[in-house]
């Protein structure tokens, strides 16, 4: 393992920002793996730390195949993580909305560029990501539909679902999208936590990445086969929104099977505890995403359901 400082930015009042990378194997730039890009992505940092630990052990016993380099970047934003801010604290901009970056541009464009110059050019790019809405997912691999995406490659992670998203304009400045625009097969791996550590799903993510690395021939690693993934189009998920605001009591969770008429959750009057609005499933399927905050606004997305279609 080689530990490198990939990018440095001086600060007027803090020690320099450093983005640290860990390289395993040598030769062709095969896989780049990026963890936390936002300051609250603690789970994503943790997954990288566990992956680095595994890769170091694999490398020590010669299990990384020749002419393959793996680069792992656990955090692109230690500055934000250290002060508990999700975004770049000076101007609240999101580094994951600044790719491919610009080395003569604004500060977060320079950070994005500093990272992208090191993680571009790999055959495969894996990011541990978090979503812009608060909630939990079934662990899955997400990819943008750019014309360069390959769902069959995404299947090699052995996670239960591969989700394809039609990029919206604001997606065009994410790392995943720009990796694909630069001919890297890009995958975002979602587990069910962001700002807390969930050991079970973190292990599932580490196993999924090692399974992927094994299946593309980069590491020799014995693992169980995982799932044969179902490929779903994000636009086909059925969204259930909050009919009112209040205290939210979720009853169903990601992975649960539901049928039409099932009670999925309740919105309670915040003062009296009365049920203000039941949340009822209008369809049959599997819960893919569940809202996970105690308070809810009207129109918040509470659930996304993979509909079961009857032939």
């Amino acid at each position: 393992m080689i530990r490198d400082i990939l990018y440095t930015l001086d600060s007027p009042y803090r020690a320099p920002l450093e983005i640290t990378g860990f390289r395993f194997g040598k030769g062709e730039k095969t896989v780049a793996i990026v963890g936390a890009i936002r300051g609250n992505e603690v789970q994503q940092l943790y997954i990288c730390s566990q992956l680095i630990s595994k890769l170091r052990a694999l490398e020590a016993k010669g299990a990384i195949t020749s002419d393959n380099e793996i680069l792992v970047v656990p955090s692109a934003c230690p500055y934000s993580m250290n002060i508990g801010k999700r975004f770049w604290a000076v101007d609240n901009t999101d580094i994951n909305r600044m790719f491919p970056g610009y080395d003569r541009g604004e500060t977060t464009q320079r950070i994005a560029d500093g990272l992208f110059q090191h993680v571009r050019g790999y055959s495969y790019g894996i990011q541990f990501a978090s979503f812009y809405m608060p909630g939990d997912f079934i662990p899955h691999v997400r990819m943008m539909e750019t014309g360069f995406q390959s769902t069959s490659l995404a299947n090699l992670f052995g996670l239960p679902y591969v989700l394809v998203r039609h990029p919206r304009p604001y997606d065009t400045t994410t790392l995943n999208y720009n990796w694909q625009m630069n001919q890297t097969n890009a995958f975002s791996v979602y587990t069910n936590q962001t700002d807390r550590i969930d050991e079970v799903s973190a292990k599932q993510a580490v196993d999924a990445v090692l399974r992927f690395l094994s299946r593309i021939g980069v590491v020799r690693y014995h693992c169980h086969n995982g799932f044969l993934a179902s490929v779903i189009d994000e636009d086909q998920l059925y969204s259930i929104t909050a009919p009112d605001g209040g205290i939210y009591r979720g009853i169903c969770h990601p992975g649960d099977e539901v049928t039409r008429g099932d009670l999925l959750g309740e919105i309670l009057d915040p003062y009296t505890g009365d049920v203000r609005a039941p949340v009822v499933s209008p369809t049959e399927g599997i819960v893919f995403f569940g809202y996970a905050q105690p308070l809810v606004m009207e129109h918040a997305i509470l659930y996304r359901i993979i509909r079961r279609l009857h032939g």
């Binding site: 009112d244 209040g246 308070l295 009207e298």
Partner: peptide, 10 residues
Amino acid sequence: STALPIGERV
């Protein structure tokens, strides 16, 4: 207009 969680609308 949309309901916020606790006794207010935006």
